[in-house]
C-alpha cells in the first residue's frame, strides 16, 4: 500500500489537523509515514501545504516527487490547483468550493471551479456550507477530509477513532461534533 497526499489551503484553515488525523489513523494501521509541514512566516494568511506519505514499506523522501501524488485534499479551491504538478495522471483532487479571499486579485470563483472540473478525477464539496448545516461552522476542514476518505486507503473507522482521540483532549462535545462533520463529508 502506498498513498501520497498533498494537503493544501491558507494558513489558519486547519490543514495540519487533517494531517494529524490521517497520521494517527495510519499509525493505528501500522503504516510507515512521513509528513512535511509548513511552519513560520507563510502561516500568516499565505498559501500552505503539507506532504503526507503513507506506505506499508519505509518511506524515503519527506517530499512527494512531482507527478506522484495519489490525492490532493484542499480546504480552498484556488489552492487545490497550485499543487497540480504533484498530482499523478490517475490521482484525485478533492476540494472545498468556498474561496478564501484575502488577496486583491482573487480570480472569479467560477473560473477556478471550471478548471477543476476539467480534471477526470475531481470532487468539489461546499464544506463550509455542510459544516454550517450540522451546526459546526469551524469543522470545514474535517468535512473535506470526510469527502476525501473514499480515496484514502484507510478504514473509515480508523479516521473516526483518530479524530476522537485527538479532539477528546479539548472536549467530548468537540470530538462528537467533528465525527458528525467527518460523516457529513463522506456522504456529500
Amino acid at each position: 500500500m502506498k498513498s501520497d497526499i498533498i494537503l493544501s489551503g491558507v494558513g489558519g484553515q486547519g490543514i495540519l489537523s487533517i494531517a494529524a488525523i490521517i497520521g494517527l489513523a495510519a499509525i493505528e494501521n501500522d503504516l510507515y509515514l512521513k509528513q512535511a509541514e509548513v511552519h513560520g512566516m507563510s502561516q500568516r494568511g499565505g498559501d500552505v501545504q503539507s506532504h503526507l506519505r503513507l506506505s506499508s514499506k519505509p518511506v524515503h523522501s519527506d517530499l512527494i516527487p512531482y507527478g506522484k501524488a495519489d490525492l490532493i485534499i484542499s480546504v480552498e479551491p484556488m489552492e487545490s490547483l497550485r499543487h497540480l504538478p504533484w498530482l499523478s495522471a490517475s490521482g484525485w483532487l478533492v476540494t472545498n468550493s468556498t474561496p478564501f479571499m484575502n488577496i486583491g486579485d482573487y480570480p472569479p470563483v467560477e473560473d477556478i471551479l471550471s478548471r477543476i472540473r476539467q480534471l477526470d478525477n475531481h470532487k468539489i464539496v461546499d464544506a463550509d456550507e455542510i459544516a454550517r448545516q450540522i451546526g459546526s461552522a469551524r469543522s470545514g476542514n474535517v468535512v473535506i477530509l470526510g469527502a476525501a476518505s473514499h480515496y484514502l486507503d484507510l478504514p473509515f473507522e480508523s479516521l473516526e477513532n483518530a479524530l476522537v482521540k485527538l479532539f477528546s483532549k479539548k472536549s467530548p462535545e468537540i470530538a462528537e461534533m467533528n465525527v458528525k462533520a467527518l460523516r457529513a463529508g463522506r456522504n456529500a
Binding site: G11, Q43, G46, Y66, G67, M78, E79, I103, Y106, I112
Partner: peptide, 17 residues
C-alpha cells in the same frame, strides 16, 4: 519524468499578510 499537470494560469500568488 512523465508529463506533468501545469499550474493553471488562474492561480494567483498568495503572499503572507
Amino acid at each position: 519524468s512523465e508529463p506533468l499537470f501545469e499550474v493553471p494560469g488562474v492561480v494567483r500568488t498568495r503572499p503572507p499578510s
